[in-house]
């Protein structure tokens, strides 16, 4: 065979082999992480984890009940504050601001906030909420999470509303509907599945956020549903337990990590199912 063909084929084979190797390399690492997470996490998964409070240093009994409750409250509150704001902002970008210079700026800023380091958001909330309020609180943690939720929801809402065909809006407007009703009754309904997907993805994103909670919500060893004081939460509890010298704390950290991962993966899967059913 022509030597040029042979050389081309060799190079092609080499690159193909490298790409296969890269794929295997990537999937092996990620598989290993999931494996050790399940292996170590399941070992400590008992009913007491959901019932008992986080243990004091050295204790051999306890659970994560207060941390789980705190995480649920803060994530719920964060999404409840952030999602409507993001929804409305996304609506303005997609429906009113399509040809507005301001919308271009806001879109750009939003994209940057979308990937801004979350620890910076923690510092921001510390300066704006924790210091004026005079102390760490669950509310500050929830607000930090809301700041992370907003850009995600803005982005998905805008994208989903832009997918709604303009003929639908024109038909509604031709019947005499005012613009706001066209948006609320027609555009929202057409884009509902996508918007819900966006909110769920945002929830998944903040459910495991740790850095912004380190110095906003702090943590709490006891059961507390009071959002104006420090509040236990899974990520910060894991953070504290990982670096501890106690074997039982480390075990709880693995179990907590497993719970967070399952919650995040579950939310992702549900979000995708909703999104895909709509796509068909």
């Amino acid at each position: 065979m022509n030597p040029i063909y042979l050389a081309r084929r060799r190079r092609d084979l080499l690159v193909r082999a490298l790409c296969w190797a890269a794929a295997i390399f990537g999937i092996v690492w990620l598989g290993l992480i999931l494996f050790s997470l399940f292996w170590n996490g399941l070992a400590g998964l008992r009913p007491s984890v959901f019932v008992e409070m986080t243990p004091p240093p050295g204790a051999a009994e306890g659970g994560l009940a207060n941390a789980i409750a705190g995480s649920l409250i803060m994530t719920g509150l964060g999404v409840a504050i952030g999602a409507p704001l993001g929804l409305f902002a996304g609506t303005w970008l997609a429906e009113y601001g399509r040809h507005d210079r301001l919308a271009t700026v806001i879109r750009f800023i939003n994209d940057i906030l979308l990937s801004a380091p979350s620890i910076i958001i923690g510092l921001f909330v510390y300066g704006f909420i924790v210091v004026p309020m005079g102390g760490f609180s669950g509310l500050a943690g929830a607000l930090a999470l809301a700041v992370i939720v907003i850009p995600v929801v803005v982005r998905t809402t805008e994208n989903m509303l832009l997918l709604v065909p303009n003929s639908l809006r024109e038909a509604a407007a031709a019947l005499g509907m005012p613009a706001s009703l066209v948006i609320r009754r027609v555009a929202y309904r057409a884009a509902r599945a996508g918007i819900v997907t966006g909110v769920l993805l945002a929830t998944a994103r903040v459910a495991g956020e740790t850095a912004p909670l380190l110095f906003t919500a702090l943590s709490n060893q006891f059961w507390s549903l009071d959002v104006t004081s420090t509040m236990a939460n899974l990520p910060v509890t894991i953070n504290n337990f990982v670096q501890s010298p106690y074997a039982f704390w480390k075990q709880l950290a693995w179990t907590g990590a497993l719970l967070i991962t399952l919650a995040v993966l579950g939310l992702n899967v549900v979000a995708r199912l909703i999104g895909e059913r709509k796509g068909k």
């Binding site: 929804l87 902002a89 700026v105 800023i109 910076i120 958001i121 921001f124």
Partner: peptide
């Protein structure tokens, strides 16, 4: 409704401004 959405959109700008201001202070 228009102003509600516009205000929400402006919040995004305010967030960035707030982050910069709080860090600088």
């Amino acid at each position: 409704f228009y102003w509600l959405t516009r205000l929400a959109a402006l919040t995004v700008l305010a967030l960035l401004g707030g982050i910069i201001v709080s860090l600088v202070i």
